[in-house]
């Protein structure tokens, strides 16, 4: 079966610094993959590259989304093909209200799929599901929001844009237990045979709520180990050191 997302021999540099080396990763429709690794291992670089950040230059390899090569494609065109990145540290956009941003985004990605008059209803339902007040909509995008509010806003966008492939970059960080529960349950409920996830995380706790089919370990810009959900548990118990040592011996 053709993978929904396929990363083939991907090498990337940013400002002349090599950050990813010959990464291969293949996600089938409906699968949940977890990508784990220490700080600075290249996890966020991979997510930015997948979403087409202009500073991240692909030096070799390719990325296929549903069989289509994403090379040269703008971030907005990738989003329109239903690729989604939930940012670890989403940038603040003072002056742009969340309401205006979400409406423009939904219209851009989903076009006529959601009639204009339905958009507001849809947003209201999703706000309620995430326990967010409607007054939130008049605030500026990520401006003055707490860490937890930012993660909820990213999750809200994930649910509204209905992607085929969602990359969640440390969506669990900075959340208290209750917030983590609310966010993971909304993500888990999106799981379907037509939607795939790449969960980027340091920790096991998010993966207890959203159980992955495959776990990858990224070190120094290279995937050094791939396994099933038990690999995440192993990392949680033993840390990355043993894998680091094993990969160093190869």
């Amino acid at each position: 079966m053709k993978p929904i997302l396929e990363i083939q021999d991907l090498s990337v540099e940013v400002e002349s610094k090599k950050v990813l080396h010959h990464v291969n990763l293949s996600i089938q429709k409906g699968e949940v993959h977890a990508l784990m690794g220490r700080n600075g291992s290249g996890k966020t670089s991979l997510s930015y590259t997948l979403m087409g950040h202009p500073k991240y230059r692909v030096t070799s390899g390719r990325i296929l989304l549903d069989g289509e090569d994403l090379a040269g494609m703008s971030p907005s065109d990738r989003a329109k093909r239903r690729l989604f990145l939930a940012f670890q540290n989403p940038v603040a956009v003072p002056g742009v209200t969340i309401a205006s941003f979400l409406r423009t985004s939904i219209r851009s990605v989903r076009g006529d799929e959601v009639p204009a008059k339905e958009v507001r209803k849809l947003i209201r339902e999703e706000l309620a599901g995430l326990g967010i007040s409607e007054t939130f909509m008049s605030r500026f995008v990520n401006d003055g929001l707490s860490g937890g509010e930012k993660k909820r806003l990213e999750t809200l966008q994930l649910r509204l844009l209905q992607p085929k492939v969602a990359i969640l970059d440390e969506t669990d960080s900075g959340l208290d237990v209750d917030a983590l529960k609310a966010v993971t349950s909304r993500i888990e409920s999106l799981r379907s045979p037509d939607r795939s996830f790449l969960l980027i995380t340091h920790y096991q706790r998010m993966l207890e709520a959203i159980r992955p089919d495959v776990v990858h370990i990224l070190m120094d810009g290279t995937i050094v180990k791939t396994g099933d959900a038990s690999l995440a548990k192993e990392i949680d118990e033993q840390g990355f050191q043993s894998i680091h040592e094993a990969s160093a011996q190869l």
Binding site: P54, S76, A79, F87, V93, V96, S108, L161
Partner: peptide, 13 residues
Amino acid sequence: EDQLYYLASRGIP
């Protein structure tokens, strides 16, 4: 540029 990228990543041309 980071703000532009963020908005573009949400499908906004």
